[in-house]
Design a protein around this nucleic acid. Sequence first.
DNA 1: CTCCTAAATAGAAATAGTTTCTATTTAATA
DNA 2: TATTAAATAGAAACTATTTCTATTTAGGAG
Lengths: 136, 136
Amino acid sequence: MQYFMAKLKLHNLKFTPRRIAIIQLFLSNNIFTPEEIWNRLKKQFKKCGLPGVYRNLESLVECGILAKIHKIDRKRYYGLCSAKENIHHHHIICLQCGKVDDISDCFFEKKETIKGYKLISHYIQLNGICEGCLNK
Amino acid sequence: MQYFMAKLKLHNLKFTPRRIAIIQLFLSNNIFTPEEIWNRLKKQFKKCGLPGVYRNLESLVECGILAKIHKIDRKRYYGLCSAKENIHHHHIICLQCGKVDDISDCFFEKKETIKGYKLISHYIQLNGICEGCLNK
DNA sequence: CTCCTAAATAGAAATAGTTTCTATTTAATA
DNA sequence: TATTAAATAGAAACTATTTCTATTTAGGAG
Ligand SMILES: [Mn+2]
Ligand SMILES: [Mn+2]
Ligand SMILES: [Zn+2]
Ligand SMILES: [Zn+2]
C-alpha cells in the first residue's frame, strides 16, 4: 500500500478511502468494469457514486497503478499494472479468470517505420488462458 | 466492384444501393465512424437511417470487406480491409489522413504460449503517419 | 492541533453512441 | 412475374459515460 500511496502522491492525488478500496479490489489481479467496482464499493460505503468510480479509475491509470484493458463488448475494463515506472509494455489477459500480466518484449518498441509509415504509437493486447486456469 | 459483389454473395448479403455507396466511400482508403458515413449517405439518399448504417458496417466486416479500427474515443471506426481472404493480419492507420494498410508479418501468429498463458487471440493496431502525409 | 485549499465526492441530470422494434420495401432467385 | 429472405426507415429504447453543482475531505502550512 505504501507503494501505491507514493505513486498517488507523485501525481498530486490524495490517498482516499475510495481509492484504497478500489486498489484492494484490484489486488486480486482481476479485471473489472467501472460498474463492477461500483457494485462492490456500495457494500463497503453507504454513499458511493458511479461518477466517482469512473474518475478514480482514470486517475489510477494516469499514475500508472491501473491499465486499461480492451474487450469486444462496449465496456471499459481495468486491471492492475505491475510494471515498474515508465517501462514500455503490454498486457496479457486470462479469458477465464481475468488475470492480467505484463508483457515486456515488444517488437515495435524500437521500430521507427513500417510500410512507409512513421510509427507513432501502437496497441497490443494478448488474450489467453493462464497457467492457473490451465491446470484446473 | 465485382470483387465486393462476390464477397457479399458469398455471405448471402445483397448488393444494395446503400452498400455500394458505403463501399465507394471507403475506397478513398479512409476510416470513418458510422455517423460520418451516415452524414455522407444523407446527401445521396433522401431517406437514410442511421441504424441501417450500423447494420451495414457490421455486415461488411463479417464478409471481410471492412475492418474495425480502434481509437481512444468512444466511437467505432471502420476502414477498408484489402487483405486476401482469411489471412491473419493487422492494420496500420495514418493518424493524419486516416489511411489504412495491412500488416501481414505477425510475431504472435505462430506463438502457442507466452508467460505460461496459452495464447487464444491477440489484437494489434499500429498508428503512424503515412508516406503521403510525411511528404507534405 | 487548527486552518486552509485543492482535490474528491454524491447525486441528479444530460449526453452520446448504439441497439431494438415494427412495418414497409427491395434484390435476387425460380 | 411471383416469391421470399434480406434490407430498410423511423421511432423509441437502452447503456455506458460525462457533466454539473453543491458539499465534504485529505493533507500540508502555520
Ligand atoms: Mn502493466
Ligand atoms: Mn485488412
Ligand atoms: Zn509495444
Ligand atoms: Zn497477429
